[in-house]
Structures are given as structure tokens and as C-alpha cells.
């Protein structure tokens, strides 16, 4: 097994853990965390491919990861504030409780 495939397998496992969490948990904060995990698994892939790729001097993987981390931070901030707004409205952050479009 080459080092790269080890990292790719680990990244796939992390992605699946995040996916499982996002699918099975009903708490909005945890679903958001699961999505963040999936993003992070993708970041690991980028860095691994940059490290073992044919042209590491191009820095593309590193750049993509940096931008992805900043987008993930923005996503977390907006997502958590949406969760706060929803909580203020319906007094619950259980996703099953948010089933009406009427305010």
C-alpha cells in the first residue's frame, strides 16, 4: 500500500463518518459538524494529492485547502447563526421539529 492510498482511505473514512453523522443525528448543530467533517476530509485529499502529486511546486492543493478552510469557517458562522435564529423561533433545534413553512 502506497502512502497516498493510505491517506485517501483515511479521507474516505472521515467522509463516511461525517456523512453518517449528518444522516443519523437530528440535532442541527451536529448535522453542521458532520458537514464540516466532510469538507475536512476533502481538504485532506487535496493536501495528500499535492504532496504526492507530480507537480508540488504549483501549490494548487495548498491554495485550495486554504480557501476551503476559509469558506468552511464562513459556512460555520452563518450556519450557527441560522440555528440560533431557528431556535429563537421554534424553541428547538431538532431538525424533525422544523417541518412547517408557516411562521
Amino acid at each position: 500500500m502506497s502512502p497516498l492510498s493510505g491517506y485517501l482511505l483515511l479521507s474516505a473514512l472521515l467522509f463516511s463518518i461525517g456523512l453518517a453523522g449528518a444522516l443519523t443525528r437530528r440535532n442541527a448543530i451536529l448535522v453542521l459538524i458532520g458537514i464540516e467533517l466532510m469538507l475536512n476530509a476533502a481538504n485532506l485529499n487535496f493536501i495528500a494529492f499535492w504532496r504526492y502529486g507530480p507537480n508540488p511546486a504549483a501549490l494548487t492543493g495548498v491554495m485550495f485547502t486554504i480557501f476551503s478552510i476559509s469558506v468552511a469557517a464562513a459556512e460555520a458562522a452563518v450556519g450557527l447563526s441560522i440555528i440560533l435564529a431557528v431556535y429563537r423561533h421554534s424553541k428547538s433545534i431538532n431538525l424533525d421539529a422544523m417541518n412547517s413553512m408557516k411562521g
Binding site: P3, S5, S16, I17, A20, L23, R51, Y52, P54
Partner: peptide
């Protein structure tokens, strides 16, 4: 189950592509 399936597919894809992956640099 869905997550496990996703992982199985990804792992299969990675292991079948191992030969074409760059090994050492």
C-alpha cells in the same frame, strides 16, 4: 448503511486505482 456503502465504493475505487497512483516523491 448509506455511509458504509459510500465508504465501500470509495475504498474500492481507491484500491483499484492504486497502481496508477504516484507512489513516492
Amino acid at each position: 448503511l448509506i455511509a458504509a456503502t459510500v465508504f465501500a465504493v470509495l475504498a474500492w475505487a481507491i484500491s483499484s486505482a492504486t497502481r496508477s497512483l504516484p507512489s513516492q516523491s
